[in-house]
């Protein structure tokens, strides 16, 4: 992609004899919220750490806005990062710490930006509190505040909602969603429904390799199949298979009807409507409809 902001080009990273990443290529388009998905040990954190310049790739090229993260000072003011397992520096209270980090980011009014960032995550009251005195959830929110300091054009968030209560997690998701278009955001999470709702696209890693990457519609095959949960009634499966645009229809014993679309079908929505009409005319009672597979099913099938 020509407008890719985050790029890993055939990047490998070895730790001794163990390959954490093997010729991984990732490309995140500008202004999108992109997910990084995979089971434990898939290479998500290594990918994050390479993008942040914490690690040096064994081979391949890493670029953020065309800059090499390992070049000293190249990420100043460009990148906001919420690392997953890094403790906040404990030698300053939250407010002075964010001001200090803002100064190092080259912000013109670091203290003001620090107050704005803390307000954004709803923690203005912890300005004078040492990071060690914060709860895990509050610490994550302060971590998020430092990542958002000065509104950087690229933001990397590793497990941003981990350990947060549902209300705060929803607020954080809202914050990330608002960044769409303004910033390019890479989010890593094990919470796949969260990523499915939040992201424009994702890269799925397993055992240090990319197993699939694309937009969320492509990953979940939203325009390739749909599922109908049948509550009651006899399903005319043969009639369904004969409908224009339907390539395959199958019924599971639990009443889940899966319809795969013909790739040549002009409008998936028209096929869905025709299918529903046929079922309702046959007296079938429908309790739910979903397009494509869930991201979770897709990831479970791939990894």
């Amino acid at each position: 992609m020509s407008d890719a902001v985050l790029v890993l080009d055939r990047v490998s990273k070895r730790f001794g004899t163990r390959a954490a990443l093997d010729a991984v290529t990732v490309s995140v388009p500008q202004g999108t919220v992109w997910g990084l998905i995979g089971p434990n040990g898939a290479g998500k954190s290594t990918t994050f750490n390479l993008l942040c310049g914490y690690l040096r790739p064994t081979s391949g090229k890493v670029r953020i806005l065309g800059r090499d993260p390992r070049v000293p000072g190249s990420l100043k003011g460009v990148l906001g990062v919420l690392p997953q397992d890094a403790a906040l520096p404990g030698y300053l209270a939250v407010g002075p710490l964010l001001t200090y980090l803002g100064t190092l980011s080259g912000l013109e009014r670091p203290e003001r930006e620090a107050r704005v960032a803390l307000e954004l995550v709803g923690l203005s009251e912890v300005w004078d509190v040492p990071p060690a005195a914060l709860s895990h959830g509050m610490g994550r929110r302060v971590g998020l505040a430092q990542a958002l300091l000065g509104d950087p054009p690229v933001v990397l968030l590793d497990e941003p909602t981990s350990g947060l209560d549902p209300r705060v997690a929803a607020e954080v998701r809202g914050l990330v969603a608002k960044m769409r278009g303004r910033a390019t955001v890479l989010v890593s999470s094990h919470n796949l429904p969260e990523l499915e709702a939040l992201c424009d696209g994702a890269t799925i890693l397993d055992h240090g390799k990319v197993v699939q990457a694309g937009t969320m519609a492509e990953l979940t095959a939203r325009s390739a199949e749909f599922r109908i949960q049948v509550a009651r009634g006899d399903i005319p499966v043969e009639a369904l298979r004969a409908l224009p645009g339907v390539a395959q229809a199958s019924l599971r014993p639990d009443g889940l009807l899966s319809v795969v679309l013909d790739p040549k079908a002009e409008s998936p929505e028209a096929v869905l409507n025709a299918t529903l009409r046929l079922l309702l005319d046959a007296g079938v009672q429908v309790s739910g409809v979903s397009q494509g597979q869930s991201l979770e099913s897709r990831v479970l099938a791939l990894t």
Binding site: V81, A87, L88, P89, L101, Q146
Partner: peptide, 8 residues
Amino acid sequence: SLRYLTVR
């Protein structure tokens, strides 16, 4: 915690 500094 050095990671908060090295990106800046």
